[in-house]
Design a protein around this nucleic acid. Sequence first.
DNA 1: GTAACTGCAAAATATTTGCATCCTT
DNA 2: AAGGATGCAAATATTTTGCAGTTAC
Lengths: 141, 141
Amino acid sequence: MDRKIEDILKRNQLSVTSGRKKILELFLQQDGALAHNDIEKRAGEKFDRVTIYRTLQAFLEKGMIHSIPTSDNSIRYALCKDNCSEGHHHDDHVHFVCSACGNTVCLEGVMVPPIKLPNGFVVEQVEMLVSGVCKSCNMDV
Amino acid sequence: MDRKIEDILKRNQLSVTSGRKKILELFLQQDGALAHNDIEKRAGEKFDRVTIYRTLQAFLEKGMIHSIPTSDNSIRYALCKDNCSEGHHHDDHVHFVCSACGNTVCLEGVMVPPIKLPNGFVVEQVEMLVSGVCKSCNMDV
DNA sequence: GTAACTGCAAAATATTTGCATCCTT
DNA sequence: AAGGATGCAAATATTTTGCAGTTAC
């Protein structure tokens, strides 16, 4: 695992530091999305707020993560899959926000359906955000 | 126009004040979405930041506007159509963010296609956010 | 007149920047 | 050793809250 994490960082030309390893590990551990706030909590007060901002920024610029807009004010970030190179994202899958547990997950298997816009509009990117109750929360009932 | 604005406010059980009339007017004038910041600018320093926060909150609670998540950190708000009653939104149309002019508009005519999620997931709301170049910006070229 | 709304001040929160120090390479 | 990353302090920016004064009904 540790090896894998370091590989990812190196592959993206980022120096391997404990902070980045920790944050990347958090992303790998749970296959959902994390907001700045989540990271701060789960990292266990280990490092500075500022470092988290800068680390997320770096990951974003390298294309390692992508941001998911949500209705509340918090931007969440999720790992990009391998076919997602720097600056050009292929994360055309659906994002799901659970209203029960609050988790945001990427539904890799669910593709965003093609959309036809009126004449004159050029589509660059499509984002689909579904809210509802997720699998785990449904089973809990 | 002024009559129409007052009617809308009354219909939603909000007292008619100059601030609310002004903000509602802004929404009616341009059929796009406005962020808190936009309102502050276009209102011409007329009233307090805080009033804008509270007004937007009130409009939101009454179901007069809905929020549109965007990739940058700013939440934008747009008017709801008439079939959108308090607490229950039918704004299942596509939102478009223009990367050229920065405007966010509701594409009322474009419905969000139905989406099928894996077993166990319950869908409550679907939001579709398309970015690209809008009609007006395309014509400018 | 009463309840609701607004503006001001201030608190709480979130984000950005500069710089000295420390860690990677 | 050099360049990049981090932590701290501080500057900005954003959002929330309390309260007194004002306005709508």
